[in-house]
Amino acid sequence: MEDKHMPRDERHTETIPVGALGIIPTVSCQSLGEKVNNYLVQWREQRENEHTGTLAFTGYRRDSYIIDAKTPRFGSGEGKGEINETVRGYDIYIMVDVCNYSLTYSLSGNINHMSPDDHYQDVKRIIAACGGKAKRINVIMPFLYESRQHRRSSRESLDCALALQELTSMGVDNIITFDAHDPRVQNAIPLNGFESVQATYQFIKYLLLGIDDLQIDSDHMMIISPDEGGMSRAVYFANVLGIDMGMFYKRRDYTRIVNGRNPIVAHEFLGSDVEGKDVIIIDDMISSGDSILDVATELKRRKARRVFACATFGLFTNGFKKIDEAYENGIIDHILTTNLVYQPEQLLTKPWYINVDMSKYIALLIDTLNHDASISDILNPVERIQKRVNEYNEAHKH
């Protein structure tokens, strides 16, 4: 019997597609886009249904759903969007990774690395190149552009809200992001589709695949939130697994400002005893990695057994030296981050790294949305998590 959450069943063909499916991965998202496309090609090839030969399903089975689109640059560094095949009547999914710092272009003879601003601008160029001909435009932006600038604490710009309003005013119907820093930014576009998708199931899946001696109960494991902002994420994770959680809060010195922020004096812990337990730190992103390492150090000081860190986005803005040292010193055992943002080759070879592949999940979201079917059950992975944990426990009975 096939898992009802899998897209090979007939649920999808009960509804007519919104339009012919087209995926446009921008240059920042090429490899992820290709993986997503491969899943869709494979699933739709296998899907048997009496209606797929009808007019409403025209172009349903294709060798590739990727639309030929480019964002070339002039010598001055200015760019433009080009689409080299028809998109009339298509249901378009534009994929972008605003954190991909590996791409460059020439700026009057100088090599310039693409910034999040450049990637965001390229999305707008692709939308503009569609020229209003597409049936519907959806943007899949795993790391939400400017999501860390989500609220105003003084005379500051509200960049994330501005970007969302700008995209919807250009005709974008749905914006799909992952683990938004603060999902309340969707209040900026209350009449449009905005989904902040969690990677909880995939973290558990890859943790169970990568580590074969976990004991998932409150005597042997605990979930940790590294700060007060990530509480709800950790509470969900802990409740689904049926284990305890703890949290740290950052004690800051509000009398001083260093590099634009109040410096952290200490990480204070709230929660039950972690001694002898495997702990899983769960967060939305690892930027420099300092915060995760501070928390891991504190947990080890409290005699935690092993420390695993899960973060949706591994940016590693200061490189890997400190993390390598922490791994060698037994402070951290494994870090899991997703392939939703650019991963340098160097990261993929690290002994402490577990890569969490999200391409199948994105393909499932696209497939379902293209059929205008509800994605509620895809966004709620409780059953799938419990099934996987039960299978793991059965396979690893001592």
Rank of each mutant, 00 (worst) to 15 (best):
I243Q: 01
T26Y: 03
A266E: 15
N84A: 11
I83W: 01
G59P: 09
R252L: 09
P351G: 02
L103N: 07
Q121K: 15
S64K: 11
N110I: 10
T338M: 01
K397E: 12
R301E: 11
L364F: 10
D213Y: 05
Y342D: 04
K4H: 09
S157E: 14
G19K: 04
E325V: 13
V27I: 15
N239W: 03
V185G: 03
Y39T: 04
S147Q: 14
T52H: 12
R62I: 04
N390Y: 09
D284P: 03
N390Q: 12
N355Y: 06
L293T: 03
I257K: 13
H181P: 06
E48K: 14
Q215E: 14
V87D: 05
P226F: 00
L158Y: 07
L207E: 01
A20C: 12
S288Y: 06
N370S: 13
L293A: 03
A161V: 03
L369H: 00
D9M: 08
F308A: 04
I282V: 15
I223C: 00
M247A: 13
L144M: 10
N339Q: 01
I257Y: 07
L164F: 08
Q149G: 11
V172E: 04
T168M: 03
K387N: 13
E394T: 13
E391F: 08
D290W: 05
T54C: 11
G109C: 05
R152S: 14
I286R: 01
V41G: 06
L348E: 11
G193I: 05
L158R: 02
D273Q: 11
L144H: 05
I257V: 15
Q149T: 10
L158Q: 00
D213A: 07
C130G: 10
G171D: 06
Y327H: 14
A199F: 05
A234N: 04
Q186H: 13
S291F: 03
Q46E: 15
H371V: 03
A129C: 07
C310N: 03
V265P: 01
S64E: 12
I366H: 00
H396Q: 05
Q386R: 12
E45V: 09
V139W: 03
E328A: 14
A395I: 08
K277E: 02
T338L: 02
G276D: 05
N192I: 02
N380W: 08
V258E: 14
L208Y: 07
D9N: 14
I243V: 15
K322Q: 15
D324P: 05
Y353K: 04
I282Q: 00
N318H: 11
A363P: 02
M6S: 12
E82A: 08
L270C: 15
F269C: 05
G77N: 09
M222I: 08
Y60K: 06
R302F: 00
I111W: 09
D159E: 11
K80Y: 10
D294Q: 13
D273Y: 07
I281G: 05
K300E: 02
E328F: 01
D217P: 09
S218P: 14
C130V: 07
M6C: 11
E394V: 12
R148S: 10
P183H: 07
R11S: 09
Y93S: 00
F203N: 00
S287F: 00
T15L: 13
